[in-house]
């Protein structure tokens, strides 16, 4: 009766491989993923593929201001997407702006995820008044409009990339906390947790090595959507003039800069950064939608 190697030959299929295969089934998601990857790639490579460093004031010529797409700049290169009100090459500015927007979004997303997930996990595991207190704070946080809270925070904290990230983390941690708590409450009741308790594994090991990995699926979904939100929120704040400074223009700042010229027909100053922002957020959201479908077992056929 011992030794029953019924299934010894078949390929070892990890959960990740299965996930990847299902992810790639949807063409729209694959397209969105490619667009997003391309955006990240050009953002990372910005210094090598742009004719101008828009942060270097010595390279920016105020006489080039507001030139339409296709004109030659005084430095000799072609302004593919035109130039903005301060004479910056829009193509370069967009790529550099994308860098800032993406890194602010990703960084605030990751920090908010780590903070929120830890808090949510502890809430679910400890329970009692600790959980009640944490979750009421989460409710309170989520009942306030994110833009409003971020606006107030930035007004109090002041300008700067670090402050924007801090504000975004404060606005967003609650989503992660709520998500993780919900799935941790489910996981905690499963018998593998009882088994781990019986094996006398430490609480932190049970929490972070056993329960947390099983809460990752919804967390990743929320993470993608929230990162898109963070990017949009940062753009909003910058557009409103309380976000990033003019010297480090993110996409939102670029859009805001061009806004005053919209009615005079110089559409490109706002339009092209707007397209870049749109592409970023839409591609992340489409990937997030697919992730939700793939990772949610209830939607499985």
């Amino acid at each position: 009766m011992s030794g029953n190697p019924a299934m010894s030959a078949p390929v070892i299929e990890t959960l990740f491989q299965r996930f990847l295969a299902e992810m790639l089934e949807d063409r729209i998601a694959v397209g969105a993923l490619l667009v997003f990857a391309a955006l990240v790639a050009v953002a990372v490579m910005a210094p090598f593929i742009t004719p101008q460093n828009p942060y270097d004031l010595a390279q920016v010529d105020i006489l080039d201001a507001r030139l339409p797409p296709g004109t030659k700049a005084s430095e000799g290169f072609t302004l593919v997407l035109g130039s903005d009100g301060t004479g910056r090459d829009l193509y370069s500015a967009i790529l550099y702006g994308l860098r800032i927007s993406l890194s602010v979004g990703a960084l605030s997303g990751v920090i908010a995820m780590v903070v929120g997930a830890s808090i949510g996990l502890v809430a679910a595991y400890v329970g009692g008044w600790v959980e009640a207190t944490i979750m009421r704070i989460v409710d309170l946080q989520l009942s306030l409009p994110a833009v409003l809270v971020a606006l107030i925070l930035v007004a109090v904290l002041g300008k700067g990339v670090d402050k924007i990230i801090l504000a975004l983390v404060i606005v967003q941690w609650a989503y992660y906390a709520r998500t993780v708590r919900a799935s941790a409450l489910v996981e905690r009741r499963k018998e593998y947790v009882d088994a781990a308790v019986c094996l006398d594994l430490s609480q932190s090991r049970i929490l972070f090595r056993h329960i947390l990995p099983n809460c990752l699926a919804p967390l990743i979904v929320v993470g993608t959507v929230q990162t898109a939100h963070a990017i949009a929120l940062e753009a909003t704040l910058s557009f409103l003039g309380v976000g990033l400074p003019q010297t480090e223009p993110s996409l939102g700042v670029l859009i805001a800069n061009g806004f005053q010229y919209m009615l005079s027909g110089r559409y490109w100053i706002s339009f092209f950064p707007g397209i870049a922002l749109l592409l970023t957020i839409v591609s992340i959201n489409l990937v997030g939608d697919r992730l939700r479908d793939v990772l949610n077992p209830r939607l499985k056929r």
Binding site: L15, K190, E191, Y192, D194, A195, A196, C198, L199, H210, P213, N214, L216
Partner: peptide, 16 residues
Amino acid sequence: VQMVFQDPASSLNPRM
């Protein structure tokens, strides 16, 4: 003292 559980699906951590 160790325990063997009823549900073989939920008593093993699916991520390990």
